[in-house]
Amino acid sequence: MPSLTLLGQSLVSGLFIGGLYGLLGLGLGLSWGLLRLINLSHFALVLLGAYLTYQLAGTAGMNPFLTPLLIVPGFFLLGVVLQWAFDFFRVNEFSSLLVTFGITVVIESVIQWVWTADFRRLETPYATLSVRAGPLFLPVTEMVMLLVATALSLLTWAWLRFTWVGKGMRASVEDPDIAAAFGVSPRRLALLLSGVGAAYAGVAGTFVALVYTLAPSQIYGWIGVVFAVVILGGLGNPLGPLVAGIGIGISESLTMAVAEPSWAPLVSFTLLILVLVLRPDRI
């Protein structure tokens, strides 16, 4: 049995990585739930955002926390263009898997071409900064990541719940024809939503660059667990991924502490399979 301190520290790191899972799942879940597109390229955009942060902060000397100012508008546009193309080519839920896998491979190749397949590490003073709380260490960057994930999830929830655009979006998910007959433009809202999703990928990318060592293949590292997060959290529910992400993050890190690190994926996939068996209507 590991010590209480180790368990506490696992709990903390599980909580923080849950923030990242939530952030990654937020964008994926929005387009899956509200646009019925399973956007695998979301993960490629995250890594692209991470490499851009690496470039801007590492090489150009920008403060890494300011890089989203440049990345977010660019990614928003990219998301709009992607959605426009999906719409133009009439991509549906199933073909979206294939199409966005293709886009993922292209982005991966671009990353490899520009930054090579070598590991890249953004060296910043933030990387080692942490606060002590009793016997536990709280890494500052990851704390900010959890805060940002929470803030974006809550903002997205409020946006969908209280604004005209948000209500129009939910109405067009339920019945696009009738929504259109009352003046809602589902296609325009889809462009906006896709832009927002891509912008979230950019934000997540900045944190990935701050916390992890980068390699192009990392694109595929999170797909499984984030799919579990999105499905557990409920498609299109903006708060679900964060809650599910934290749940999975904590259970993973406790499994690592109590059993073996290699057992960690077992937890998320067991949960995913249980949900799919018991509540298949969640997809």
Partner: peptide, 20 residues
């Protein structure tokens, strides 16, 4: 009817006045 079943009564009415 084709209401937006997952939205509240008032939200359905609000979609009614969505046009500017």
């Amino acid at each position: 009817r084709r209401l937006f079943g997952g939205m509240t009564v008032e939200e359905n009415l609000e979609i009614g006045c969505y046009r500017r």
